[in-house]
Write a protein that binds this DNA or RNA. Structure first.
Length: 469
RNA sequence: GGCGGCGUAGCCAAGUGGUCUAAGGCGAAGGUCUGCAAAACCUUUAUUCGUCGGUUCGAAUCCGACCGCCGCCUCCA
């Protein structure tokens, strides 16, 4: 299997440090708000990468951090007159809920910054001892001039960075590009004790400390959005490698942006849709299909039209799954395995995914597979349960357990659930007409049949309403 | 200014030297099936891959120039 490594800018054969184990770290959210559908793209693609590694037989230790203390959380806590903890806890819960609705497999662990202050302080201490960091009045900075590889991941050149720098000159910094490891506490802000007085960790250090603690000094895969390459991941490399003296990450994976009207979707631009908003209109399967139909490194434009098209595609897969289940429920004969090579579809799927997670190609394989199976079923050939079980297994192994574009355990879409109410309204309307025509027999059939489904009609003067039993 | 990416059918999008007269999805047209539908299936929908040159027996794929779009260089998935 090949993975594109941002560090080398080439596709590399993936070989973990300690097979079959894989250590996988993904930069998670700062919990100050609901995450948007652009963030969801990264989380879903990381989930697909993780699940495909598991499909290949790897045992993945999947860590996704939660940044639960930072400027934005503090700002929100002041605006809403709540503690930073309340804000963080609320949005952490919302985050986990949304991940679940996106069919994202729970991480092995979601470490929180505030629960790793000791580890962070320890790492900063090491950096100071080794001469990579310096203190100015209770604040600790990383001295990038001491780390000779700085800029290697992002391809930045230090002189040019400084020349074109838009960073405010901080009098305390030796170099404008030096970054904060530990922030001196301000009044009314959360604070923790440290050898340099009260304060709180800078943003970059938590990932270095937590990934080291939970995955070790050298990890196999570190993933995140394209916008994290610089400075966040560059800084992580500097901190981790300076402190540990070892290679930090073996494969760097970065996800392309989700754009809206050709511009990067982001909180600061305000051109975003929250994931929950989108989940209320489109099925998880459609959202994941939408993401899977584009390669993870490229840009992807978001629009409701495209999502609606993906929903149609998801419907097609859903119909297929329903058909297989229906066939399986019939009385089946022992023999009747058609001339059909499921293995070749597994091969095609694997070849596609092995090539730097070519999900569009993998999706195409699944659609081709469904068409071929439908042809067999349409031909009227008797098929046995073994064949149908194999078909179902293929769909579960690939479309469900890796891509997450179908769910045999839940073969209705969110959209369809939302449709239920409208459908009942239509039945009530028809029944109203029947009543006017005094066709009470049919009207009663509608009422009785709905009743059997747990929907109780109530005829009142002002019209018909209904309740669910 | 520096670094990186992108431009393939009506739309989305794989493919990155020959099997490409280019996968798959959505849409559209016609057909099979059906009482009519739906679902499914079949056929059609790019001789062409931003433009112009070049390399090559051969290019969507490599090189050069140009045009257009986007991202990072500040918090950001």
């Amino acid at each position: 299997m090949k993975i594109y490594n941002t560090f080398s800018k080439t596709k590399e054969e993936f070989v973990p440090l300690n097979p079959p184990n894989v250590s996988f770290y993904v930069c998670g959210p700062t919990v100050y708000d609901y995450f948007h559908i652009g963030n969801a793209r990264s989380f879903v693609m990381a989930d697909i990468a993780r699940k495909y590694l598991e499909f290949k037989g790897f045992i993945v230790n999947f860590i996704m951090n939660i940044t639960d203390i930072d400027d934005k959380i503090i700002k929100k806590s002041i605006n809403e007159k709540k503690s930073t903890r309340e804000i963080a806890d609320f949005f952490t819960a919302a985050f986990k809920e949304d991940l679940k609705r996106l069919y994202i497999k729970p991480a092995t662990l979601h470490p929180k910054a505030t629960e790793h202050i000791e580890d962070i302080v320890l790492m900063i201490k090491q950096l100071i001892e080794k001469g990579y960091a310096y203190e100015v009045d209770g604040t600790i900075f990383f001295d990038i001039s001491k780390f000779k590889d700085y800029g290697k991941l992002s391809g930045k050149n230090l002189e040019e960075l400084e020349a074109g720098s838009r960073i405010d000159i901080n009098e305390n910094k030796r170099n404008p590009l030096d970054f904060v490891l530990w922030k001196k506490a301000k009044e009314n802000e959360p604070e923790w004790d440290s050898p340099w007085g009260k304060g709180r960790p800078g943003w970059h250090i938590e990932c270095s400390a937590m990934s080291c603690k939970h995955l070790g000094e050298t990890i196999d895969i570190h993933a995140g959005g394209n916008d994290l390459i610089f400075p966040h991941h560059e800084n992580e490399i500097a901190q981790s490698e300076a402190a540990n003296g070892k290679k930090f990450v073996r494969y760097w994976m970065h996800f392309g942006f989700l754009n809206f009207q050709n511009e990067k979707m982001s909180k600061s631009l305000g051109n975003f849709f929250t994931t929950r908003e989108i989940l209320s209109k489109y099925s998880t399967e459609a959202i994941r299909l939408f993401f899977s139909q584009t390669h993870y490194r490229g840009p992807l434009n978001f629009s409701e039209e495209l999502l609606a098209a993906a929903e149609k595609g998801a419907d097609k897969i859903r119909n297929f799954a329903l058909r297989i289940n229906e066939e399986l429920s019939k009385d089946l004969q022992e023999d009747g395995y058609p001339d059909f090579k499921i293995k070749s579809f597994y091969d095609e799927f694997t070849i596609a995914m092995d090539d730097d997670l070519n999900t569009p190609q993998a999706v195409a394989t699944i659609f081709n597979f469904m068409r071929e199976v439908n042809k067999v079923l349409d031909s009227g050939t008797k098929v046995n349960s073994k064949f149908l079980e194999d078909v179902k297994k293929f769909m579960k192994d690939t479309a469900q357990n890796v891509l997450g574009i179908v769910n045999f355990e839940k073969l209705t879409s969110n959209k369809k659930e939302a449709l239920d109410d409208k459908l009942i309204e239509i039945l009530i309307e028809i029944r109203q007409t029947l009543k006017k025509e005094k066709n009470y027999q049919l009207a009663d059939i509608i009422r009785d049949r709905l009743n059997e489904l747990g929907i109780v009609l109530q005829d009142k003067k002002e019209g018909t309403s209904y309740i669910r039993k």
